[in-house]
Design a protein around this nucleic acid. Structure first.
Lengths: 154, 154
DNA sequence: CACAAATGTATTGCGCGCAATCTAAAAGTC
DNA sequence: GACTTTTAGATTGCGCGCAATACATTTGTG
């Protein structure tokens, strides 16, 4: 009788493992990033900005990170206050705000260069398992965030 | 030159896919749970309480969900205000608070019984892929949250 | 050119997560 | 039995996420 609804068991579906594991990964990153003075979302933001290689608008950054201005604006203000990023209106289109990484922001790249390796060690997955996980997560994200996604077989 | 640090690419590691996908899954659940009046963490909490089958302490619930009192106390107060749970001090040990699901809380089980199926349809993964993902996430969680975890090969 | 619609950010409000701190009750210690 | 230590929750503070709303700047339309 303890399992009148077996499909509702916490471990029966993907939701809970995904939820709990992601928070564990976030905590692990946070412990490595704390000495550098970055939160995990701020770290991902810096990765995206470094990767872009030049000035990026808030909306372009949001598209890359799947985040909106409600989250990004205050986060970017904190990065700006910390001297890692500048925010200035685009003269070509005064609606947009262009983000540029400062020299101090670029210097952070060396400081966090070893973070991925250290995290990989903490996670303890072999390459094959990591690739399988990466592939499945990517497909899941496309299925959920992809626009139409009406069909079930890709 | 745009890739002086290839290991820092957003898609090179697991962190970003895990982060973005989890939020996409949470949004999908939220849209299904909104009519029932539950947030996604509240839904997971109800799953844990239903699964327990009887009164549970806050710390026992926290151990199951990997959450602490700082998160659970206000969440449980909201569930209590909504009439889904009661919170009362354990007479045997006045430090502990025992959580009991009300009749209204039990009734929710039927309302959300189809949520896992509907989510599975949205996620669009076949059974094999879901099992691989489930297994890898579980191993990852144990590696990160397991106590010692000194060794690299399980 | 006036004027409505669309676009890009910012703001507000709420619910997590989590570290740090606090309080009260129980368990150990002498 | 007073005293310290431990344990269980609650509280505070901060940083996300995200929906809803507001605002200013284009852009499209007549």
């Amino acid at each position: 009788m303890s399992q009148a609804y077996p499909q509702l068991a916490l471990d029966a579906q993907l939701c809970f493992p995904l939820y709990a594991t992601t928070r564990a990964v976030t905590r692990a990153y946070a412990s490595l990033l704390e000495p550098v003075g970055l939160t995990y979302p701020q770290y991902l933001t810096m990765l995206a900005l470094w990767e872009a290689g030049g000035p990026v608008s808030v909306s372009a950054l949001g598209a890359r990170l799947h985040l909106d201005s409600g989250t990004l604006t205050p986060l970017l203000k904190r990065l700006e206050a910390a001297g890692r990023v500048t925010r200035q209106r685009d003269p070509e289109d005064e609606r947009r705000v262009l983000l540029t990484v400062t020299d101090a922001g670029m210097a952070l790249r060396e400081e966090v260069a070893d973070v991925p390796w250290r995290l990989a060690a903490l996670m303890g997955l072999d390459r094959g398992e990591a690739e399988v996980l990466h592939g499945a997560l990517g497909r899941l994200l496309r299925n959920l965030d992809g626009e139409g996604a009406a069909d079930a077989q890709p």
